Amino acid sequence: MAHLSRILAVLLGIVAGALGAGWLLRPTSPALPDTASVVQQMREVARLETLDVALYKKVTFSPEPKATDALWKDVVNWAAYTLQNPHGRAIVFADAHLGFDFQRLGPSSLHVAGTKVHVVLPPIDVRVALRPGETEIIDSNLDSAQTAQLLEKARLAFEHDVRADTRLQQRARDSAERALRALLLTLGYREVVFVDRLPTGTAG
């Protein structure tokens, strides 16, 4: 009888050990970082995600402008109505940068439910910078100040074109979403959903 008791005690010890090991080795939910830390890391990653696009446009300015696009026609009209007998051509080069204004990203842009997170991206930021080293002004009677005004109008026209280009906007959004999704998954979230607005009552 004592021998049987010792066997039972050993078996109970083995079972208890196995249960203890199972408890220690059980899968645990990842410890997710606080929202403020997540937002800061998202800003850092997204700052690198800017879509750069090279642009160029040929502009001929004369007393009878023939440009068809409204904003580019305004560039040509400026020369026609500002100068005496304006003439010349410009080949304008520029770089457009499309990214998101992530300084406007805050805790109210995220909603966390367990390991699922909803994200509202801030508005797209569009910046256009001319490339003066490649821009050409040909056979022009504009002085330097007038040329600078013409080029600024061209820059604004480029910016308008980019803001109206839904294809470029989507490319920028896709790039930012890929980078942010990769970051959030490495932080322990298992599902990342990008939305236009958070579900009612879930902001923060």
Score class of each variant (00 low, 15 high):
47 R>D: 01
48 L>V: 00
48 L>N: 11
48 L>R: 13
49 E>G: 07
49 E>V: 02
50 T>H: 04
50 T>D: 00
50 T>S: 03
51 L>D: 05
51 L>G: 01
51 L>T: 10
51 L>N: 05
52 D>R: 14
52 D>N: 10
52 D>C: 00
53 V>F: 03
53 V>R: 05
54 A>P: 03
55 L>T: 10
55 L>H: 05
55 L>D: 04
56 Y>D: 13
57 K>L: 00
57 K>G: 06
58 K>I: 11
60 T>E: 11
61 F>D: 06
61 F>P: 04
61 F>K: 06
61 F>N: 06
61 F>W: 07
62 S>A: 08
62 S>L: 02
62 S>F: 04
62 S>N: 02
62 S>E: 04
63 P>A: 02
65 P>K: 01
66 K>R: 15
66 K>N: 13
66 K>F: 06
68 T>M: 10
68 T>F: 07
68 T>G: 10
68 T>C: 00
69 D>W: 05
69 D>E: 15
70 A>H: 10
70 A>K: 05
70 A>Q: 08
71 L>P: 05
71 L>I: 13
72 W>T: 07
73 K>W: 08
73 K>L: 14
73 K>A: 12
74 D>L: 08
74 D>S: 12
74 D>N: 14
75 V>M: 07
75 V>Q: 01
76 V>I: 02
77 N>C: 08
77 N>W: 05
77 N>L: 12
78 W>P: 07
79 A>E: 07
79 A>Y: 00
79 A>C: 11
